[in-house]
């Protein structure tokens, strides 16, 4: 009997959307599908997790999991793994889950596969390397459970209409695992639709030359309406916009109807976050920019001239 677990990160709005995607996938490779949810609000997530296929949800609402980074969650998860022996544990590629998975691996001595884009069986996963140009199947060996970090939006989340049994987790967290404390939380969210949900994403890169020029992207987004503004790692690292804008390997994965890349050359780590977009438009001065290989329409030229014209055009077309 194959048993696959999903580590379901608990957020302010319920389970992380990717955990529902992972449950949907888990149903196709295992008879027993269970989830682990730790932190305030965990018990409530059992409804959505059950609906997507979790037969059992191991849950704890203990605030210790939100207050201290990674160590308490890894400790509790290792305890549960030793008790219930799943064959595989799936995690969404998020910062918190990545931290927990990395720590669990050290304790279980089992393999940890990052950046999976598909889970083929209990010992085989698929990943894409070189910005998605190459697909690699990887065989996982060593002791169970196989630990797999899956990129969000790799599969759709489909409800199965089930109900989960909730098993309360009462893990004793040792004091020496309550160390790195979240002392403050700061929000720097942008106005408008969320990047992952917007139908149009307009992203800017170094080619915009100056942080002030990001304003034209915001202007374009509001002209379109259902659009969000994103950015490359380079400009986030340079401090032009907050990290919440970042699209790519270490940022968000987006699949909008239209992706407009402005002044973005197309570094591998950016492409993996947006290549699933339905339509891709790229504006860049450099005709050899790798982004053009992915674009349905590439415009070679100065974005600072093209974008204002596009805003005018959109305004003219709107009734």
């Amino acid at each position: 009997m194959a048993k696959v677990w999903v580590y379901a990160e608990v957020g302010p709005d319920g389970p992380h959307p990717a955990s529902l995607e992972l449950l949907t996938k888990a149903r196709s490779i295992a008879d027993t599908v269970e989830a682990v949810a730790l932190g305030p609000g965990a018990t409530q997530t059992a409804v959505a997790l059950g609906d997507h296929g979790a037969q059992t949800v191991f849950a704890s609402d203990d605030p210790v999991y939100a207050e201290y980074l990674a160590q308490p969650a890894a400790h509790a998860l290792v305890g549960l793994i030793e008790e219930h022996r799943p064959n595989m544990v799936l995690f969404a590629t998020t910062y918190d889950s990545r931290d927990v998975a990395g720590r669990v691996q050290a304790r279980t001595g089992s393999t940890l596969m990052s950046n999976a884009t598909d889970v083929l069986s209990l010992d085989r996963v698929q990943t894409q390397i070189f910005g998605g140009a190459t697909v690699v199947d990887v065989e996982l060996s060593g002791p169970d459970p196989k630990l797999v970090l899956v990129r969000p939006k790799s599969f759709p989340a489909e409800p199965a209409g089930g109900t989960a049994d909730v098993v309360e987790v009462n893990a004793e967290i040792p004091e020496d695992r309550k160390r790195a404390r979240r002392a403050e939380r700061h929000e720097e969210a942008a106005a408008g639709p969320k990047l992952e949900e917007a139908r149009v994403v307009i992203a800017g890169g170094r080619g915009l030359q100056d942080p002030a020029n990001f304003a034209i992207l915001e202007e374009l987004a509001s002209a379109i309406g259902s659009a969000a503004v994103g950015a490359t790692r380079a400009v986030v690292d340079a401090g032009w916009v907050p990290y919440s804008y970042q699209v790519g390997q270490t940022g968000k994965t987006v699949k909008p109807d239209v992706y407009i890349a402005v002044g973005i050359s197309g570094a591998t780590q950016h492409l993996v976050g947006m290549k699933g977009s339905k339509r891709i438009v790229a504006i860049n001065k450099d005709p050899d920019a790798p982004i053009f290989k992915l674009a349905d329409l590439g415009v070679v030229g100065d974005a600072l001239k093209v974008v204002p014209k596009l805003i005018e055009e959109i305004k003219a077309r709107k009734p």
Partner: peptide, 17 residues
């Protein structure tokens, strides 16, 4: 496959639109 690549000109804005 890669799509069409055009030079920025008067038609670029309307093609994107």
């Amino acid at each position: 496959g890669p799509g069409e690549v055009i030079e920025a000109g008067d038609e670029a804005a309307s093609r994107i639109a």
